[in-house]
């Protein structure tokens, strides 16, 4: 039992809070006592060199990986832990299943179910997990497929779709669960350059029209700058620097940030 962290956060707390979160693989520390708050409706981009822990932030928040220390809170309640006596203990699988539904994730490699059509991909979870009827789930899925411009391909299997189209279906699939926080893990990294725009347009509309809380790990500096409320630069498992996109991109303070931006912007 751990009593260092509260069993719940007071009203008005951020939607997501990483409190002293440490994640390591053997000797390798990927997240080092990370503290990060994400406010409701905030769009946060995470940038940084590979191996800096930026994807791990999303993976531990999606509970794909367990953390070694600290607590992650979502919507005021702990996610990685559950109340026990006066403190917290590591969450059980059934507790995780209750809490995890507040979070949705879109993967670099889309990870659509290849044996299902685009529509089936989007209705499975709402029907099984949320208990929607097939009609309700299809109505919801069709709305979302239309929003991402994929309604005309609803009966196609993923192998028949381009990378950009698959990723748009994957976004619709995640949205169908109505998550409070959407995690985007390098969603354009596996795409051909000519289809990156169609995926970025979908994310733009999620941000501007739907006001979804989003955390995005990205290598698209221009896009991060355009769309983010805040940009976090990760280095060696910590936030080396964060701030508004204007501040971070135009007037970085940290030496590592300067080097990274230099290298990345030079490459483009």
């Amino acid at each position: 039992m751990d009593t260092r962290h509260p069993q719940s956060l007071p009203d008005g707390s951020p939607l997501v809070r990483f409190a002293d979160v440490t994640k390591s693989y053997g000797d390798l520390t990927v997240l080092d006592k990370l503290n990060l708050d994400i406010a409701q409706n905030e769009m946060v981009s995470i940038i940084g060199p590979s191996g800096s822990g930026k994807t791990t932030v999303l993976r531990v928040l999606m509970t794909l990986e367990t953390i070694n220390d600290g607590v992650i809170y979502v919507d005021g309640e702990p996610l990685t832990h559950m109340p026990s006596g006066a403190g917290l203990e590591v969450a059980s699988e059934s507790y995780l299943r209750q809490r995890r539904s507040k979070i949705g994730m879109v993967f670099q490699q889309f990870n659509l179910f290849p044996h299902m059509t685009a529509l089936q991909n989007c209705i499975e979870a709402p029907m099984q997990v949320l208990g929607l009827s097939r009609d309700e789930a299809e109505e919801r899925a069709l709305d979302l497929l239309q929003m991402v411009g994929m309604d005309s391909k609803k009966d196609q299997h993923p192998t028949r779709l381009s990378g950009g189209q698959q990723q748009r279906v994957a976004i619709a699939r995640a949205l169908a669960m109505r998550p409070q926080v959407m995690l985007l893990d390098e969603v354009t990294s596996a795409l051909d350059p000519e289809v990156i725009g169609e995926v970025l347009n979908v994310i733009r509309s999620l941000n501007s029209e739907h006001n979804l809380t989003m955390i995005m790990v990205t290598h698209q500096m221009g896009f991060a700058r355009e769309i983010s409320d805040r940009v976090c630069f990760f280095y060696e498992g910590k936030i080396a620097e964060q701030g508004s996109p204007e501040k971070l991109f135009e007037d970085p303070q940290n030496e590592r940030t300067k080097q990274f931006l230099h290298a990345v912007l030079d490459a483009n």
Partner: peptide, 27 residues
Amino acid sequence: VPKAQWEACRALNFSTAYTYRRVVLPQ
């Protein structure tokens, strides 16, 4: 069956039994 398929199921909050039945075994 790629590990990524398991992760997609977890992200969609499927139960383990359902993951096997609808996603892993059919593949």
